[in-house]
């Protein structure tokens, strides 16, 4: 589903963020990406969502080489990738409902279909009763769940999350992870970047570890001790 082939990324100014990264995440797989801050996690996610382009090597999604995607096509690629961010990236001036409906409005769904889908997504994250609230009226965990609802509302085949539990306590973090697991169970590929090793250890999924731009391991979490 997501495939990296010998991908390197050097930023302007010579900072080498990623060096010869190769890995693959299969369709329907759930995996973690971990490493210290500055290890290249964000760069790796940016390459998938085409916020950055690799310096060398290839990134493929569903067999399509992303280097073939031109600037005008990027929005259509992003519609197939639900993205979740540490600081939520919600629109402050719009209600929870409008925030979650955003991807559907962009794609031109009818009002009826939009309502149906937004309700379903909010229901999944347990916030159906707060759809008229504004983001500032919600707690950090709730805002994160709104972000998740927005990411899944158009049922994308891929979910990317960048430090989704960054500001949350362990209990809330686990709740969020359970929600990701649910989506994974219905066939969505989920790829989560986090430095919360304790959380990863509690869940038995493959973990990719980055250190100074290189991929250390690509093992299942069962093989303890390497992280």
């Amino acid at each position: 589903m997501i495939q990296f082939e010998q991908v390197s990324k050097t930023y302007r100014g010579g900072h080498q963020a990623l060096q010869k990264i190769s890995f693959e995440i299969k369709a329907g797989e759930m995996a973690f990406l971990t490493g210290h801050s500055g290890a290249g996690k964000s760069t790796l996610l940016k390459l998938i969502s085409i916020m950055e382009r690799p310096s060398t090597g290839k990134v493929l999604i569903n067999g399509h080489d992303l280097s073939q995607i031109n600037r005008r096509q990027i929005p259509y690629v992003r519609r197939d990738i639900g993205m979740i961010f540490q600081n939520h990236h919600l629109l402050k001036e719009q209600t929870v409902f409008d925030n979650v409906a955003l991807p559907l409005i962009i794609e031109g769904y009818s009002l009826k279909e939009t309502k149906k889908r937004v309700h379903a997504a909010l229901d999944k994250v347990g916030l159906l009763d707060k759809q008229r609230y504004y983001p500032v009226m919600l707690s950090g965990g709730e805002q994160q769940r709104v972000g998740i609802a927005r990411a899944v509302v158009n049922t994308p085949p891929i979910l990317l999350a960048d430090e989704p539990t960054g500001n949350l306590d362990p209990k809330l973090s686990l709740d969020i992870m359970r929600i990701f697991e649910e989506f994974n169970r219905v066939g969505t590929s989920v790829f989560i970047a986090t430095h919360d090793l304790g959380l990863i250890a509690r869940m038995k999924y493959r973990t990719l570890t980055l250190k100074q731009g290189r991929m250390l391991t690509s093992n299942l979490a069962d093989d303890e001790g390497e992280v």
């Binding site: 929005p75 992003r78 993205m83 990236h89 919600l90 955003l102 794609e107």
Partner: peptide, 13 residues
């Protein structure tokens, strides 16, 4: 910020 969010969720220019 709003424009960034729109771009992230796949809005065309």
């Amino acid at each position: 910020e709003e424009i960034e969010v729109l771009k992230l969720v796949g809005a065309t220019d």
